[in-house]
Amino acid sequence: MSNPALSLILDTAVAAYSDAKPLMTGGHDPKRNGFNLQQLELHAESSVDPYFTLQTNIVFAQFGVEVEEMYAESMALPAGLQIKAGQFLTAFGRINPTHLHSWNFADQPLMIGKFFGSEGSRGLGAQLGWLLPLPWYVELKASATDAVGACCARSLLGGNDLPVRSPGDVAYTANLKTFVPFDEDWSLSISASGQAGPNASGNGNRSEIVGGDLYLRFRPAGDPERRHLSLQMEHAVRARQVPGRSLVDQAGYAQLIGMFALRWEAGLRTEWTTGVADDPLDPEWNASRQRHSAQLTFYPSHFSRVRLQGTLDRPAWRAEPIWGAVLAFEALIGAHGSHGF
């Protein structure tokens, strides 16, 4: 019997920030001056039988192991349906359901860190996907997952591991996505997402996050240099009920990524977040913050990359902006499945 496809991905970086505490929000961001192990990811996937596949993503840090994702997915349900069950990243927006390995920057967007947590929105639960019976691609995904974890549900119950007493005590996430191939070269993907669940302020108070994203891609199909240019944007609004009021803030980013020659990529990203003054649920992030990044990446082959990234971070609650420079290296061995669009 054949083994599952196994791969190991090493992400490591050397970083220099103008502040010893650079306020990085991603669990695998280069967080400190000097050498950083971002992660060693062990990915395994295979068919279980004709009905299911199993995928696992186990992430090793220097002194610990974490099961990032582990889920079975159906292959043979009728009517365009597909079920995923286990622990998985929820289908909110474009970046959240993906891993560091397929990101265009060395760190996680602030929007993910602020609204979902250092690991992004994920949980134990189940997701139903439906490929709508339309002549063009439209997919609806809806999931129910546990609403706990400081890493993965910080707008919901966060670190408060409260018991589930009713169906309202878990997190619900939905995403509706469509894709428009204008021609062989140009295409556009847009989606809308929403998440709702209980929050940590008690009394049945709830949090809701609503977001939209777009991905516009130009890749001349016959170009021997495999050049392409893509614009990706996400924006989300969050509302959290607390006793006596509702806290509303926003976050998003826009990035422009260009593969300008064989093996060479460059990117620009700007991020924005607002904050709520005297935010009882997020006391350390109660004002606006902007961050701007630029990167240059060289891919020696399909299986390795070297990325130089510069960052200017402007949290309103700091007197000085934080400058950062990161040199990140990634190497992949083994059989790694193809990535989504």
Binding site: L131, F179, P181, S187, S189, A221, G340
Partner: peptide, 21 residues
């Protein structure tokens, strides 16, 4: 794929999911 596309490096465009479906 069209003959202009290198089959090693095609984009996984979601509309292809419909064809496969």
């Amino acid at each position: 794929l069209s003959p202009r596309q290198d089959p090693h490096y095609a984009d996984a465009r979601p509309n292809l999911i419909l064809s496969l479906h």
